[in-house]
Amino acid sequence: MPNEPENPHRVTITADGPLLVAGPVEVTCADGTVVTSRRFTVALCMCRRSRIYPWCDTSHRRSRPPDQNPRGPT
């Protein structure tokens, strides 16, 4: 296809967690702020509970009742 990038970035959607993106990445937030991460893989928060939003800090794990946590109690 003519619009296909030569080296596409891989994005992984997780069931109950962050969006994983092959880094490095540059994220433009809703307020126009641009943040950058040079990490190999970046976890982007999807629940908006993270204290370091837009990066995931695993806050989503603490927001579910223990019986709904697939990894057991946290």
Rank of each mutant, 00 (worst) to 15 (best):
V42W: 00
R62S: 07
C56G: 07
P66D: 04
P8T: 08
P2E: 14
G23V: 11
D67Y: 05
R48M: 03
E6D: 00
E4M: 03
S50P: 09
D16Q: 01
T41P: 13
I13H: 14
H9W: 12
V35Q: 07
V34K: 12
G32N: 01
R62Q: 14
G17I: 04
A43Y: 05
T33W: 06
R62I: 00
F40E: 10
N69F: 04
C45I: 04
R51E: 05
T33K: 10
L44C: 08
T28M: 05
D16A: 05
V34T: 14
R71F: 09
V42H: 06
P73H: 08
Q68W: 00
T36Y: 15
G17N: 03
E4W: 03
S59F: 05
P2T: 11
F40L: 09
M1V: 15
A43K: 11
T12C: 08
R39G: 11
N3I: 02
V35H: 09
M46E: 00
R51T: 02
T74P: 01
E26I: 14
R38M: 09
V35A: 06
V42P: 05
R61G: 07
T28K: 02
C45K: 00
P73C: 12
V11D: 08
N3V: 00
R64H: 04
G17V: 00
P18C: 06
H9Q: 13
R38S: 11
V27K: 00
G72K: 05
R39A: 15
W55A: 04
T28L: 08
T36L: 13
H60R: 01
T36D: 15
D57K: 14
G72F: 08
V25F: 14
P8C: 09
F40M: 10
E4D: 02
P18D: 03
V21N: 11
Y53H: 10
W55S: 07
T36P: 15
